[in-house]
Every structure is written in C-alpha cells, then in structure tokens.
C-alpha cells in the first residue's frame, strides 16, 4: 500500500479545500479554517502548506479572475486531485482503525478525568 504523507495542518487545509469546493482560494481557506476551528492561521503557514500539497500532487491550482479588491491581482483556486482524495480517505481510515483499536475502558477513564478536571 502506498504511503500517504499528510501532516495535521495539511489535512485541515485539504479538508477545507474540499468544503469550499470550487471557491477555494487562499484567503477563503484561511477564513474558513479560522471560523470553523477558532484558530488563527498565518498567511505564511497556509501558503507553505498549499505549496507542499501541490508539490505532493494532492492539490492542483488554476488562475482565477483578477478583481478590484485585490488591486488587480488574480486569485489562485485550488482543487483536490484524485490522489488527494485517496490521501484524505487513507488518513480518515487509519484514524478510524486506530480509534477502534483503543480499549473502551481507556477512553471512559480519560473522559471521566476530563470531566473531573473541567469541574474543578
């Protein structure tokens, strides 16, 4: 089986591109992640991730129209490739397998602990 390399932030970016479907360009991706996950995303981190994903072949990009609010600069839209979809699925499946492998008791205890600590 092929080894799909996918970092945590990369996975989030890939998923967000999927959510945005045909509207995925950098600022929109940034906004989406920020609003959904309540975390700030730096432009630098996002672009590096996008470049890396493109290099790995999980994303492909095409130039969009240039707009007034971007001082004439074109947008660059991203689309998930077939390979990207496989990678996403692979990531999801491995997670699920790992989830299933965890004994129930462990989870309960840790949840209880979480509950206790949140009460304090």
């Amino acid at each position: 089986m092929k080894n799909y390399q996918l970092g945590e932030f990369e996975e989030i970016v890939l998923l967000t591109v999927g959510i945005l479907n045909n509207e995925a360009y950098s600022v929109a991706i940034k906004d989406e992640i920020e609003s959904r996950l309540k975390r700030t995303v730096s432009m630098g981190a996002l672009h590096t991730a996008l470049i890396r994903l493109e290099d790995k072949g999980y994303l492909k990009s095409f130039s969009g129209e240039s707009t007034e609010d971007r001082a004439g600069r074109p947008r660059r839209y991203f689309e998930i490739t077939a390979l990207g979809k496989k990678a996403m699925l692979y990531a999801k499946e491995t997670r699920e397998q790992l989830w299933k492998a965890i004994p129930k008791a462990v989870l309960e205890v840790s949840l209880q602990k979480l509950a206790v600590s949140s009460h304090q």
Binding site: S26, S42, M43, H47, D69, R70, A71, R73, R76
Partner: peptide, 30 residues
C-alpha cells in the same frame, strides 16, 4: 502575484475593521 493579491485583500479588510495603523503592522508581520 497570487500572494500579493491575498495580502492586499486581507489588508483592505483589516483597514475597514481596525484602522490603517493596525492593518499596516499586521501586513508587515504577515
């Protein structure tokens, strides 16, 4: 050009939201 466009877009939004000074600073940080 793409990234510059992003910067501009975000910059304009920030001006509206928190003024030119903040936008300038955050632009430089970006």
């Amino acid at each position: 050009y793409y990234i510059e466009g992003d910067l501009m877009e975000v910059y304009e939004r920030r001006i509206k939201k928190s003024g030119k000074l903040m936008a300038d600073i955050r632009f430089s940080v970006d």
